[in-house]
Structures are given as C-alpha cells and as structure tokens.
C-alpha cells in the first residue's frame, strides 16, 4: 500500500506541472490579419504556408527571449524558415531589439494587442510552434529553445515534416 503510494507520488515529482499540452496541436494555424513589424504591410496566415517552419513568440520585454536569441540565429542559419510573432510589444522597442541583437526571422508579425497570441493559446513568451507546409500546428515548445530542445525535439520533427538542412 505504502510502496504503491510512494511510487505514485515519486512519479508525480518527476512530471513537470508547467508542461501543458497545447490544445492547438494538430489544429490549423488560426486566421489573422496583422501588420508586419515596423511596416504597414499586412500579413495573413498564407504568409506562413508552403514549407515546414518554426514560429517563435517573442517580445523585447521577455528576458528568456534574449537568452534563446543566439540559438534562434543559429537555427535560422541552418536554413529553417523561422517566423516571429512579436507578442504584446511596442514596435520601436522590438525594432531596437532586432537592430541590436540581429534578426533571425524571415518575417515578424506585430501582435500588439495579443489577439493572435490569444487565438494560438499563448500564455507567455517565449513559445515556439512547429508548423507543417499546410499551416497545421504540429508541436508547441514553451520556454527557451536551446541545443537540447533543437536536437531532441524540433529538428527531428522538422526532418519528419520534410525539411532539409541546406
């Protein structure tokens, strides 16, 4: 009896209570109509389609985003289509941030009010979504992307979806 209880509670300690399965996995990326960061160019869901890609939710107010930024640059250098969702940020702050640290993103969606974030089920930056060529969400990673997350999760998933390193 106590052994069983011990095993159950021991298992509970190993689980990460912060890890939430996204309700959006295997759902189509939501429709949106927002502008590209720093411009008036309007963007919609179609801009993300055509190839397996990563979509990274970031903001200049987010310290962990600064931590993962160099690694995102390395992933982008491998030829991964990396889209940015600038989440509840001020345009000028976000542009200054990219100017200072470099811009790994193919394009940045300016989600000033967090409406797309809400439709995506974002609950905090950074989050990284894996999309397939048809724009279906295949995976959500919450937190910093690092070597381990890339090699163990994101890269295998992208390869499986047909992405090839260039």
């Amino acid at each position: 009896m106590f052994v069983a209880l011990g095993l159950l509670l021991g298992r509970g300690l190993q689980l990460d209570p912060q890890a939430l399965p996204s309700a959006m996995v295997d759902q189509a990326f939501p429709q949106f109509s927002l502008t590209a960061l720093g411009t008036d160019e309007s963007l919609s869901r179609e801009a993300l389609l055509g190839a397996p890609a990563l979509l990274n939710v970031w903001a200049s107010w987010c310290p962990s985003c600064r931590v993962e930024h160099p690694y995102l640059q390395r992933i982008a250098d491998l030829g991964v289509p990396l889209f940015g969702l600038n989440y509840k940020d001020r345009g000028e702050d976000a542009l200054a941030w990219l100017g200072q640290l470099g811009n790994p993103y193919r394009l940045n969606i300016a989600d000033v009010d967090g409406t797309l974030g809400l439709d995506l089920g974002v609950y905090g930056a950074p989050e990284t979504y894996v999309l397939d060529a048809q724009g279906v969400i295949r995976y959500r990673h919450v937190g910093v992307v690092n070597e381990q997350v890339w090699t163990q999760t994101l890269q295998p998933l992208l390869l499986q979806l047909g992405w090839r390193e260039n």
Binding site: L20, S22, A23, G121
Partner: peptide
C-alpha cells in the same frame, strides 16, 4: 477558452 487553452 477550451479551444485555445485546453481542458486545463
């Protein structure tokens, strides 16, 4: 809410 954030 559930559609976006799950049963959670």
């Amino acid at each position: 809410m559930v559609q976006r954030y799950g049963e959670f």
